[in-house]
Simulated scan of single mutants.
Amino acid sequence: MNKRVLALGLFIAVLASAISQALLHGQKAIATDVVLHTPYFLSPIFSMLIQATSMLAWAVPGLYVGYSCKNKPVQHGAIVGAAYAVILGADVFAMQSSKLIDTDSLLVLAVFALTEIAKYSVLFALVAPAGYLLATNRANL
């Protein structure tokens, strides 16, 4: 295990997530103006921009982890993704804890956290080999 890659990957994931959320908030603020003042046939470009911005939170850290790893990029990507999801789940749990009134809402929140861990582990693990291939191709030049 490369602990430096794991720590920096987690830092980059949190940073990319904050940047992504800020960009999405800005895009949401101008969405009504874009819809009103652009032709209808250009609306898929704006929706594609929103999708690309939301992918920033897992694509950039996954690429970094894969690029920085000398071996086992998939394993490192999955670990960083799981750690990021645990931080995200803890954040959501802390923000929603005052609204929990029964066991069912607690179970829904716990299932959400578990699915986020699985989702981000898979996404980071899928992107990490691309970063690894980029690093090996660059080393061969």
Rank of each mutant, 00 (worst) to 15 (best):
L107D: 02
L126P: 01
V111T: 15
K119C: 14
S121F: 04
A82F: 02
A128S: 15
L126N: 01
L109G: 13
M95P: 08
I117G: 03
S98W: 00
A85Y: 01
M95H: 10
L107C: 02
F112A: 14
N137L: 13
G62H: 07
Q75W: 01
C69D: 09
Q75V: 06
Y67H: 15
C69Y: 07
A130H: 00
C69M: 11
V92R: 13
D104P: 10
K99S: 15
A125H: 05
A118G: 14
A83M: 10
F112M: 11
L114C: 15
N71W: 07
Y67R: 15
Y67I: 13
T136I: 10
V80I: 01
N71Y: 08
S105F: 10
Y120V: 05
V86P: 06
D102M: 02
D91P: 04
S121K: 08
A110E: 07
S105N: 06
T103L: 12
F93Q: 10
T136D: 14
A90L: 10
L107S: 07
I117F: 03
L114I: 11
S97H: 01
Y64P: 04
G89N: 12
Y64I: 00
A128V: 00
L109M: 15
H76D: 03
T103E: 03
V92P: 11
A82V: 02
V108H: 08
I117C: 00
G62S: 14
I117W: 02
E116D: 09
